[in-house]
């Protein structure tokens, strides 16, 4: 366990449920347990990668941590001025005044997260103005400086978002996120909409900014290859819960949860046939409906190693012999296959 003084953000049994309402009286007919009992902690200066498929609750978790979504239960602690502050039930007013400037978000599609009617200057200046952090000439200098930091030119501030390419727009979104010098940034699929050659540029920028400003990231993505490249630790989510977490390389090389193994195995590798892994696990079926998760282990219906106990008892997230944490009854018994240990090297260029 890391020194508690290093922890920037911690959640405990965090839950975010959404009511499904139907009919004229909007009666609640079901509850979608988007985030269902998440314990995690993020150290200052590290990147925690959060992977999972669509609908697993990873974005909701990111939004709940930043209090864009109000949690149904559990707690979120965030370090402000060297004090752990429970932000679970703080009012929006209080959050705005004391917490918001220290955390920010970057989204997948910069075209929809940037206001098309605002110039780049006003987009980036907005948080500075709202928090009364700068004005006049100072404001303009600060915007110019931010643009330079993210690899754009100061003269770009007169233009509007549509005049930029996808990668440049994401740079603008990053400049805006950095405006108030936050400590923590939630990156929600920041490179998923970008082409491969531009993706590498943005990932490099994010890693370089982290070094430069000592940023802490929660990096949310469905793409395990990308997450592996930028993260210190990885948490794998399935149906609202974390099924496995641990150090990046360990998770990829020696996964201990069958879902992690299947995720790794499903990734198409850009390598010639003779370098291919021999074993491929193709999961059957789809992710179950989060409104009615399976009774035992949530992954059991799709798990190739399922036993009777899996349908009956919920596995606890507990330390395994490889030194990660996994929620599987057989985590220590299964010999699961990862990527990156032997052979299977992509890219030979």
């Amino acid at each position: 366990m890391p020194d508690p003084d290093d922890i920037l953000l911690a959640t405990e049994d965090l839950r975010t449920h959404f009511a499904v309402r139907r009919g004229l009286l909007r009666r609640q007919v079901a509850t979608v347990r988007a985030v269902d009992g998440i314990d995690l902690s993020i150290k200052g200066g590290e990147t925690l990668g959060l992977v999972g498929e669509s609908g697993c609750g990873k974005s909701t978790l990111g939004r709940t941590i930043t209090r864009l979504e109000h949690p149904t239960g559990g707690s979120v602690g965030f370090r402000v001025d060297n004090q752990m502050l429970d932000i679970t039930n703080l009012s929006q007013n209080h959050l705005r005044r004391h917490v918001r400037r220290h955390m920010n978000m970057i989204f997948q599609d910069p075209l929809s997260s940037l206001n098309a009617r605002m110039s780049v200057k006003s987009v980036i200046a907005e948080p500075l103005v709202l928090h009364r952090a700068a004005r006049g000439k100072e404001l303009e200098d600060r915007v110019a400086q931010l643009l330079t930091t993210v690899g754009l030119q100061p003269h770009h501030m007169q233009r509007f978002p549509h005049a930029f390419s996808g990668g440049q727009r994401q740079r603008i979104a990053i400049a805006r996120a950095l405006a108030l010098q936050p400590r923590f940034i939630v990156c929600d699929e920041p490179v998923s909409a970008l082409d491969a050659s531009v993706r590498a540029q943005i990932l490099n920028l994010l890693m370089q900014l982290q070094q430069q400003f000592g940023l802490t990231y929660l990096f949310i993505s469905h793409d395990l290859a990308v997450v592996r490249h930028v993260s210190d630790r990885i948490a794998v989510m399935y149906l609202g819960q974390i099924v496995e977490r641990g150090p990046t390389v360990a998770i990829c090389q020696t996964p201990q949860h069958p879902y992690t193994e299947a995720l790794l195995s499903a990734i198409p590798m850009p390598v010639a046939r003779h370098e291919r892994r021999s074993k491929r696990i193709v999961l059957t079926g789809d992710v179950p409906n989060p409104a009615s998760p399976p009774p035992g282990c949530r992954f059991a219906p799709r798990c190739p190693y399922r036993q009777q106990i899996c349908d009956e008892e919920i596995p606890e997230l507990k330390p395994t012999r490889q030194g990660h944490t996994a929620a599987c009854h057989f985590a220590d018994e299964l010999e699961l296959v990862g990527i990156g240990k032997t052979g299977a090297q992509p890219t030979t260029a």
């Binding site: 390419s165 590498a200 990932l203 290859a225 592996r228 490249h229 590798m269 090297q345 890219t347 030979t348």
Partner: peptide, 27 residues
């Protein structure tokens, strides 16, 4: 171009958090 594109894809044997090879500019 092909070489650059392939090298810009995160590699499973790289050390995490190292700079990726990237093609300059955009299409």
């Amino acid at each position: 171009y092909t070489q650059g594109l392939l090298r810009s894809i995160p590699n499973w044997t790289d050390q995490p958090k190292t700079p990726l090879h990237s093609l300059a500019g955009a299409v």
